[in-house]
Design a protein around this nucleic acid. Sequence first.
RNA 1: GGGCUCGUGGCCUAGUCUGGAUAAGGCACCGUCCUUCUAAGUCGGUGAUCGUGGGUCCGAAUCCCACCGAGCCCGCCA
Length: 549
Amino acid sequence: MLLFQDLLEIIRSEAKKTLSGIEEKEVIFDPTEHAHITLRLIKYGKTETNFDGKLDKICSDIEKLGFVSSVKKEGYYVNVYLNPIAILNTISESIHTAGIFPDSFQDPERVSVEHTSTNPTGPIHMGRVRNSVIGDSVAKLIERYGYRVTKQYYVNDSGKQMLSLYLGYEKFHKGDELTVANLLDGYVKIYNYFEEQKSEREVEDLMERYERGDGELIKNVREIASVVLESIIKDLEKLDIKFDEFTWESEFITSGETKEVIRKLSENLETDEKDGAKYIDIPNLRKIYLERGNGTSLYVTRDIAYHMYKFSQYDRCIIVLGEDHKEHGKIMNFIMHTLLGYENQMDFIFYGYVNLESGKMSTRKGTSIPVSEVYNKLVEKASQEIEKRYGSSDKSTAEKIASSALRFYILRINPSKPITFRWEDALDFNGETAPFIMYSYTRASSILEKSGSGGNFTEEDMNKEEIDLIVHLYEYPYKLKEAFNSLKPEVLATYLLSLSKKFTSFYENSRVIDQKDEIKNRRIAIIKSYTSIVQDCSSILGIKNVNKM
RNA sequence: GGGCUCGUGGCCUAGUCUGGAUAAGGCACCGUCCUUCUAAGUCGGUGAUCGUGGGUCCGAAUCCCACCGAGCCCGCCA
């Protein structure tokens, strides 16, 4: 939970002394340019008697607050102007004492964030990584809020796709070196082979052997999955995405937990007359099969087993899935909560596809864009840009720029919207990008490096840009709250961009190092607050700031 | 056919949940600013029937209905 002085709430409770019904959404940071904080009281104009007098009373009550400098009544709005020095001091104090603004305290609730979980059938591509980037930022957001978070990767090593990968390798590359390239080649070939044969019989036989617990087969498939998984992990580490736990799907089969799922749900299961397959008939939806006629389990069965495990370890589970899994989310909610009676909170985050201008990405068809390819091109471009400015390249900075740019390119877009991947956009370092945010940060660092450590200051000659920036800095906890409540890291991406723009306009209008102390020290304090909040917000989004670029 | 999602200047995005002060940014394009803390930047300009048509409301990009377009789901696949 976050700890900070909630200005909106304090103002609201003052106003409620006069108009008791004022709601949270009616006291807001003004999105227009009229005020810092505004009370939108239009709807009370009709119902309240002596409304104008009541507005005056509200204004005078709010004006007495220490962090308020003035209040103006304009139409049905009450416009509040904050005392920038008081606000700046509050932020500075928090950073001084807690090292951070806003402060937070540890909540005992344990949260699992499951993301990526892509089948290890090939290198991770730009479509799949949307899952990872969203999931990792959500995990960091929740951690920042004070929860204990475990980042989990559910490794599918037991389905048809994995066994096809295995079969492709056995058939076309047996004896060859066990590399991602060979595996991928066999994978493409095996699907062509299925088409030629007009049958997937061979892989179906494997699936049955696998489910019956053929130890040798399970071991071999896992070995192959590990090779591909390693390459995925390596690619993601470059983007600062790491996992705390890998759970192998096959473990739920070999441990008998999928059978346990069938037992637990036995009262709700119906049996198919044809061959004895078992299913749940979900009202207003359809039949969901949990056991095939041959007694083997299905994806849903294993996912139920996985969530029973997660619910035993965590109070809340967050799962990031592609939008094609929306119905699966409904199914899981119904089974886990309605049928099995679990009370653990379960939230799904769904995201849209990343397409190419030419159509969909597909590993099998060879039309996907691997993350590593985009990352490498970004490193190359960043190196060139650095060389242009400093005459020599700096690998570490280039990698930070690349990783930040890649994450931000995906993260700033609302997950429910599809993305069309374009190289020119992904490689852009201008405008609304991570490099712009990083650049504004380096300008701030540069001033701090040259200006000394600061000291006492006054309100003398304070300009509009300083005040704007300070007020916007104080919006950070509210943005954190909004992002947390809705599980939307893109809220922070949008905020960080607008904060960086405000800093830039401050930078253009407010010199620091050659000013007299009263002013210089104040601007140093502003910049220190700014860099602290940018660092904090960046770490959630996966932007790695540098002091020079 | 049923269900879900998306549609905002030439292109990309914010705002939509929770209706309110002139629809906010970026890219591209035209023009401006480096003896001044990093020009990956700044300032100015061109450019929007907020998919279409109805409705509710004092007030609609936002809520409701219908329609159009794009995508996804509707497997004893995952």
